[in-house]
Structure formats: C-alpha cells, structure tokens
C-alpha cells in the first residue's frame, strides 16, 4: 500500500494522500502569494516613500515605480538635495495575505462611511437573497419543464429549439430592459440571474432525464404503470440524484451572474461593497470580499453534497465505486 505510486492512472488515492493533496491545493497558491508578498526580490516593483526628501511631489506613504524613484534619487544626489527614503513594496492592488486576513475581520467590524450605506454582512445577506430568489424562481419553472421535455418528445420539440437559440443571448444584455420593466432595485437583478440560469437549466435537466435507462420505463409498463405513474414513480425518482447534482452545478453558474446582476440599476450587495472598497483603494477588503464569495460557494456546495448523500441512500455504494 505504502509503495503505491502517486501517479497511477485512474487509481483512487488513499484517504491520507487525498487529505494531504486537498490541503496542498489550497496551501500552494497561498504559498506563492506569501512568497510574492514577503520576499522583496521576487516582484515588489514599487517604492513606498517614508521620507520625501527634497523631491517636491513625493509624499509620505505614496507609492512610486522603482525606476522613477531611482531617477529622482540620483537627481537629488547630484544636486546635493535631501535624499528621499522608502522601501520596496507591491502595488496597492496586491495586499499581503496577513492584510487580507485582518481585513476579513475588520471589514465586518468597520462602520460604513455613510449612514445610507450597508455593513458588509448586510451586503452579503442581500447578495444571498438575490441568488436565492433568482435560482428558486428559475428552478420552479425550469426543473418541471426539463423533466417533461426529457420525458415527452412533443414537449421537447415545442420549446427546445427556441431555448437553444435563447441561451446564446448573454443574460447581461437584458440588463437595461430589465431595469425598464422591473425598476432599479432587486427586480432586474433577480431577472438577470433567472435568465442566466433558466435556459441552461431546462436543457441540462431534459438531457439528464433523457439519459434515464428506458428499460426501467419498460419494466414499469409491464408492471401496469400508467402515464402518470410512469412520470411520478419512475422518471422523477429515477433522475432525482443526477438532477440534484445538476442543480448544484447550476447554482454555481447563478453565482457567476451575481456580480453582473448587482451592477444593474442601483449597485447593491457584495458587488457594491467590492466596487466601493476599490474606490477607496482598500484592496485588502476587496480581496476579502471576493474570497468570501468563494467560501460561501464552496461551503454551500459541500453542505448540499452532504445532504445529497442523506437524500439518496441508494446512491451511496455506487458513489464509492
């Protein structure tokens, strides 16, 4: 067991190795980031000025490209003026890991600059609500339609050609229209998530439904199932586990539409927070907010995967193999 090679084609890893590699997959990018941030000779293209010296446009805390700094330094050296002082730094848009880690906490505790503005947790909660409503509305229509068109060729023919066409239309293109119809607040944002999800959803789910082994339907027919029983007792339970997996993937897509959706009308939610913080040049907060989206996405997916194992116990052993 211990001598098994790390790179064996299509062979499952031992649990221990799996854990090590999972940890590494997060650690490696973090290490690269830390290396770039903390070792000056890797990148650090700027100088952060601590002492402006006689350079009239230098200010304390200002960042300037190293070459420019060097020129000014040389000029002052020749002219015999006061020499500027500084240290090598990365650009403001690349904060160090520890700064982002701190921002993770402080962005929650920092009061909004204006009274009309929202706290970070309020922004996040708003984003989650937008996703929830967009995805739920899409699923209420898309899942049944997908199952029906995967089951009945006539239903599929009736709308799938149109959906094939419509899904190529980029959801954000409907932004202005959505604002005109639904106003500037949450309506158009939910609409964009809906448009971005729904058309893919119908196609993906009807495809999943079509993949159900037809022999199961035939077996049910010879056991006296009528059309309604076929649909509710065979097709739906038969596709449910895969449909659940599809929904998890589609939920991920819904998140990708969130940022665009939130820019439509009045900017809101996490996107508002990100753009606002970028305007203040608080890039540590920007990074923290982007990572929060990733963490929320990953955690909710893990949670749903856990839940799926409980919901579909008959899938347990086939998942292992």
């Amino acid at each position: 067991m211990t001598s098994a090679p790390w790179l064996a084609p299509r062979i499952a890893l031992s649990q221990q190795r799996e854990r090590v590699l999972t940890l590494l997959s997060f650690l490696l990018p973090l290490l690269i980031w830390a290396a770039v941030s903390y070792t000056p000779f890797i990148w650090h293209p700027n100088m952060e000025i601590t002492e402006p010296g006689s350079v009239n446009y230098f200010q304390e805390g200002m960042q300037i490209e190293r070459e420019t700094f060097q020129e000014e330094y040389n000029t002052q050296l020749e002219a015999g003026g006061e020499l500027p002082q500084g240290f090598r730094a990365n650009p403001v848009y690349l904060p160090a890991p520890h700064e982002v880690a701190i921002a993770f906490y402080t962005s929650f505790t920092t009061e909004p600059r204006r009274r009309s503005e929202q706290w970070l947790h309020e922004s996040l909660w708003h984003s989650i609500q937008i996703i929830f409503w967009g995805f739920t509305l899409s699923s209420i229509l898309g899942v049944p339609l997908g199952i029906l068109s995967g089951t009945f060729a006539a239903v599929s023919r009736l709308h799938e050609p149109f959906i094939e066409f419509f899904r190529y239309l980029p959801a954000p293109a409907f932004g202005a229209l959505a604002v005109a119809i639904l106003g500037i607040y949450d309506g158009p944002k939910i609409a964009i998530i809906f448009i971005g999800t729904f058309f893919q959803q119908v196609l993906v789910i009807s495809n999943t439904t079509r993949k159900l082994d037809i022999a199961l339907l035939e077996a049910a027919l010879t056991l006296g199932a009528n059309r309604r029983q076929l649909l509710f007792k065979v097709v739906i339970p038969g596709v449910l586990p895969q449909l659940y997996k599809d929904q998890r993937i589609l939920l991920g897509w819904a998140w990708t539409y969130l940022i665009v959706a939130e820019l439509i009308g009045t900017s809101s939610g996490i996107t508002w927070f990100i753009t606002q913080q970028a305007r203040y040049q608080n890039f540590d907060n920007v990074f923290a907010a982007i990572m929060m989206i990733g963490i929320i996405g990953l955690l909710s997916d893990l949670l749903l995967a856990r839940l799926g194992k409980r919901l579909f116990p008959w899938e347990r052993s086939s998942n292992k193999s």
Binding site: D213, A215, L216, E218, A219, A220, T222, L223, G224, V234, P237, G238, L240, P241, F312, W314, S318
Partner: peptide, 15 residues
C-alpha cells in the same frame, strides 16, 4: 400487467 416481463439487463428500480 397481465403479461409480466423479466429482462436480460437489470431493471430493478435502484431507488
């Protein structure tokens, strides 16, 4: 249902 059938492939409902 008056003509029961057993298929070659496995057609038990997995759920």
């Amino acid at each position: 249902p008056d003509r029961g059938m057993v298929f070659q492939g496995y057609t038990l409902f997995p759920w």
